[in-house]
């Protein structure tokens, strides 16, 4: 199953992660490029992050102790 991230968009993948065997709480995915990028969902394992970085996406994992909102705002301001 795929999902399209439009150019210069930011997306938070929380609900698209199968959390049983995944080390992070959430993933903030940014498409800084000028083209659409299709990502594979749901996310099952850590390898997903590296595979999708190769497509040109900027991915920030959110750990359980992290402040999600500040990380997300940081990424959004970077994008802007």
């Amino acid at each position: 199953m795929k999902m399209v991230i439009r150019p210069h968009h930011i997306i938070s993948l929380g609900g698209y992660i199968v959390e049983w065997d995944f080390p992070y709480r959430n993933l903030i995915v940014v498409n800084p490029t000028d083209e659409h990028i299709k990502i594979e969902v749901p996310v099952f394992d850590e390898d997903w992050i590296e595979e999708h970085r190769k497509l040109g996406l900027r991915i920030t994992p959110v750990e359980y102790g992290d402040n999600y909102l500040s990380l997300w705002k940081r990424e959004k301001s970077k994008l802007e």
Binding site: M1, G14, G15, Y16, I17, V18, E19, R25, N26, V41, P42, Y68, L69
Partner: peptide, 18 residues
């Protein structure tokens, strides 16, 4: 509320149907 995550059953189910 902070740090909300909601995972619905259809996400995995639809993916499997491929």
């Amino acid at each position: 509320v902070r740090n909300v995550v909601i995972r619905t059953p259809s996400i995995a189910n639809i993916g499997a149907m491929q």
